[in-house]
Write a protein that binds this DNA or RNA. Structure first.
Length: 292
DNA sequence: GTGTTTGTTATCAA
DNA sequence: CTTGATAACAAACA
């Protein structure tokens, strides 16, 4: 379940690993995963390289050394794992730490590998995706700006993330604060895990209507969202099930989660039980004492 | 066989 | 027109 911190971790890692390396081959093992005709997809990658990697919300944007861009969305179970020549020639992709999660299994490609991009230095980038929700798509400048302009709200780690912009997202809305924060067109990058965490850190119940939040609650939420996102990036993301970084390693933020996945456990503040309900169609975790 | 997991979109309703 | 609520998608696991 890669959200902003996980996608950002992958972006930073891959910047150092694949930028300015020429693509020499592209294997598409599942047509569903590449959202272009196969011939178009291969023709627009082979022979080119990526000169930069950007991110908007949970979407990765690889700038191709042409006028095009490779979009990669991991959705729920997507992974991008990079293996260099040395590791490949060593006869396997197992890490000493034994850190590969189950879905990777230590072997690449594996049965969930959908796309493989090989670079001139014999390194390879594997796109694994158990559930085939994720995708790779090559778009031109026009389509890219259309997508970015229409689908993404304020971005927590940029200069756009100001108190003025944040408080505006509550205007003229009356849904639950959980649904609001999950809406990528309102605020980009949060998913189920970090919404629950940010609301706990702010002492706000997920089912509160957006127009019921007091100014001070919104202010705390504004700060806590940025804080939890930053901390999670510092810890290289959260692995709850399938997420791994570009080396197949798990994220370290999992043990710092206060409510997500902790149904029935003691609240770290008040020692009462963490509750789990269904809200906005999602499993929702909170403390009914600490969150008002 | 059933329920559960979630990012995003489609669809329908208000 | 806008906004919201919900189903659907897909695959695996308990």
């Amino acid at each position: 379940m890669p959200e902003l911190p996980e996608v950002e971790t992958i972006r930073r890692d891959l910047l150092a690993k694949v930028v300015n390396k020429q693509v020499v081959s592209v294997e598409i093992l599942s047509n569903k995963s590449a959202h272009n005709p196969v011939a178009f997809f291969r023709r627009n990658l082979i022979g080119y390289s990526f000169f930069d990697i950007k991110r908007r919300g949970k979407l990765l944007i690889f700038n191709i050394s042409s006028d095009k861009h490779l979009l990669i969305h991991l959705k729920m179970t997507g992974q991008l794992i990079y293996v260099d020549k040395k590791t490949r020639l060593a006869g396997g992709h197992k890490l000493n730490e034994g850190d590969f999660v189950q879905a990777v299994g230590g072997e690449l490609p594996n049965r969930f590998t959908r796309v493989v991009i090989e670079f001139k230095d014999k390194s390879k980038l594997f796109f694994n995706d158990m559930r085939k929700f994720g995708y790779l798509k090559i778009v031109d400048e026009t389509e890219l700006s259309r997508l970015l302009n229409n689908n993404y709200g304020i971005e927590p780690l940029t200069d756009d993330y100001t108190w003025n912009n944040f408080k505006d997202i509550f205007k003229n809305r009356r849904t639950s604060v959980k649904a609001l924060l999950l809406n990528q067109k309102v605020i980009a990058g949060l998913g189920n895990i970090y919404v629950d965490e940010a609301l706990f850190l702010s002492g706000v119940r997920p089912n509160r209507k957006t127009n019921s939040l007091k100014e001070v609650e919104k202010k705390i939420l504004f700060r806590m969202i940025r804080q939890v996102i930053k901390r999670a990036i510092d810890y290289r993301g959260t692995t709850f099930k399938d997420y791994t970084d570009s080396e197949g390693k798990k994220g370290n933020f999992s043990k710092l989660l206060k409510v997500y996945g902790r149904e029935g456990e003691e609240c770290c503040k008040c020692k009462r039980g963490i509750k789990k309900i269904r809200l906005a169609g999602r499993g929702t975790h909170y403390c009914s004492y600490c969150q008002k």
